[in-house]
Simulated assay, not measured.
Amino acid sequence: MTTEDVLLRSDRDRVRTLILNRPKAYNSLTVELKERLLAELTQASADPGVRAIVLTGAGKAFCAGQDLKEHVGLLQAGDDAPLRTVGEHYNPIVTAIVEAPKPVIAAVNGPAAGAGAAFAYAADLRVAANSANFLMAFANVGLGPDSGASWTLQRLIGYGRAAELMLLARTVGAEEAQRIGLVGEVVADEDLAGRAQEVAAKLAAGPTVAYSKIKGTLATAAESTLREALAAEDAAQSALGATADHHEAVEAFVAKRKPDFTGS
């Protein structure tokens, strides 16, 4: 890939890093970038050699959300593509992040707004740089949330805080984001890439089949009764008990050695 690509990809320690690469436009989302991101997420999820995914941005921003210049230009040209983008792009991207059968880490390297912030909310873990901030500004342009933000944000910080951030369109800095549970960790800007890789590599070396089941049972429990959650846990444990990773973990425990997980 060249530096002109709207999305860059790198692999290290079984971690695939996807970098939104429109730094001059704060990595705002064009049709091309959305389609590339969806394709790369889909490919990374299916690739057995990839066991964790990091999503980040180039330059000083994580992602400013929809590219409004393209949005307005297409509408003025009579193209209704912007009216279809939620269903064609944003919903599938968020679904790909949430349902990826391996951990997804958002390395939030700067401002994250709109759909860009929603992509970070959809990730399993969020590591933020000191310069990061989050903004749900949909109300400022007479719109409601999209990209799953109405579902993900309140599960991270609760209904009351989610409503406040969406109705008032208030920017949340990195320190507050950590305090309210929006991100798990805040590091110096220069340490972000290394820390995100460290976390992702640790997960990539772990029992990724179990991680997939953990994600699935959490998603089920978020919108089910206790009995339904118990049934989902039972099914997951039954399946995981037969995996090579579980047997390896038991053998390693008995032998007092570090387990060597294969993701199977």
Rank of each mutant, 00 (worst) to 15 (best):
T2M: 12
T3L: 05
E4S: 14
D13I: 03
T17L: 08
L18C: 05
N21K: 07
N21P: 09
N21H: 13
K24M: 10
L33Q: 03
L38Y: 03
T42E: 05
A44L: 13
S45N: 06
D47C: 13
R51D: 13
R51W: 13
G57N: 05
G59A: 09
F62M: 05
C63T: 03
Q66F: 09
V72T: 08
V72I: 14
L75P: 07
Q76L: 14
D79E: 08
L83A: 04
R84G: 01
T85K: 05
T85V: 11
T85D: 04
N91K: 14
A96T: 01
E99M: 08
E99Q: 13
P103F: 01
P103A: 03
I105T: 01
A107K: 00
N109D: 00
F119V: 02
F119P: 00
Y121W: 13
A123Q: 07
A123I: 01
V127N: 05
V127G: 10
A128Q: 02
A132D: 00
M136V: 15
A137N: 15
A137Q: 14
L143A: 15
G144H: 09
S147M: 10
S150C: 13
S150T: 15
Q154E: 04
L156R: 15
G158P: 02
L165P: 09
L182P: 07
V183F: 10
V186I: 09
A193E: 13
A193L: 10
G194M: 00
A204F: 06
G206W: 09
G206K: 05
P207C: 11
I214T: 10
K215R: 11
K215H: 07
G216K: 12
A219M: 07
T220P: 01
A221Q: 07
E228A: 15
A235C: 06
G241D: 06
A244C: 02
E248T: 09
A255K: 15
D260W: 04
